[in-house]
Nucleic acid binder design. Sequence first.
DNA 1: TTGCATCCTGACCGTATGGTCAGCTTTCAG
DNA 2: CTGAAAGCTGACCATACGGTCAGGATGCAA
Lengths: 212, 212
Amino acid sequence: MTESTRPMRRQDIRRENEKAILLAAEKVFAEAGFGGATMQLIADLAGLPKANLHYYFATKEELYRSVVQNIFEIWLQAANCFDAARGPVDGISSYIDAKMEISRRHPDGSKVWASEVMHGAPVLQDYMESTLREWTDGRVEIIRRWIEEGKMDPVDPRHLLYMLWATTQHYADFGHQIETLNGGKSLSDRQWREAKENIKRVILTGIGAQPA
Amino acid sequence: MTESTRPMRRQDIRRENEKAILLAAEKVFAEAGFGGATMQLIADLAGLPKANLHYYFATKEELYRSVVQNIFEIWLQAANCFDAARGPVDGISSYIDAKMEISRRHPDGSKVWASEVMHGAPVLQDYMESTLREWTDGRVEIIRRWIEEGKMDPVDPRHLLYMLWATTQHYADFGHQIETLNGGKSLSDRQWREAKENIKRVILTGIGAQPA
DNA sequence: TTGCATCCTGACCGTATGGTCAGCTTTCAG
DNA sequence: CTGAAAGCTGACCATACGGTCAGGATGCAA
């Protein structure tokens, strides 16, 4: 760690430990699910004694909640690409890029999020009913406008969004399956690019998207 | 249950109890994950004492394995539509129909399967490396032939398959999210039909599929 | 009717887990 | 320098869980 450096300031200690715990927790929750994860495992992975975890996060639930909220933030940020766009080609392309990047860089987070939703969103139900709903309604409106302006075919905006979420998250959540079918090797840079291009091409063509 | 009927035959008893246990287990595993599920909960839901579960299924792992294998069977069966097809429109349409029907009728099974894969397929790894791989290779070959025959655009067959899996399973695995965004109500017959039609339309158009 | 295999279950057990706490060390403001 | 606040942790606890088992109930073939 930072053994040979000068002693850390309190603030730094707090930040670094919380970060290490959250990172370890994300991995363990992703691999074992909430029920299968143990504080001991997370502690070991973070390189801290278990009691120290409880110093920063009172309960397993609280730690889990923090992890899930982190993911949700990242998830929502990817959405900004959508707003600045002038048309479906631009907006959907960059959204797919962003979400595929998340699937590649934060597969654990993606899995935790998927798990949370699959189990009925016990922790994030309120977020889904407020933040997520507002975000979705906003994008639906944008897509609807694109359709009105003749920039794409009249596809149901909600189902289009579900399709975008599904196809991109699949590469994280079902990454193990994809790897297995890829001869046990994780996708190469090239394969990730192909995956992205394929999704973009099929969807953009599929909705009859017109540039600009 | 069957309180007012005549006593059951042994065979029937065995079959009915195993069925009840598997059904309950599927639901509990789907809702809580493997680690979060308890034999007691499954027993209660099945209306049997916990010890009775261990009479039919020696361990929690064995019960889980049975559940997952059941899903896998259903999953593979949906694949048959693909084979009889004469072209991409026919084959992919019916495959989407079949998989959407599974998502609607067996959402719990779908979730258990998703969970299993997300956690690295600890139980079904061997199946994925044999049965699933063979199945996939076969379909890839079919799609490749369709492309050669000019029946669809040259889309990477594997990524196309992933797209089909992702979009259809999404309606089961993320059903809770979809319901929340649907005003807290589950999708109506009409909405399911729209979802299916949307997926078919976007994908078939997206790959430039030609009838026959 | 009899005997046996199957079916069933309350009570029990060892273990692992989430969580607590008393008391230690370290930082740092005044 | 000093004292209080923040950070840390080994040892401990209560509980819940997966699993066992002895022995009773039930069906069924002969």
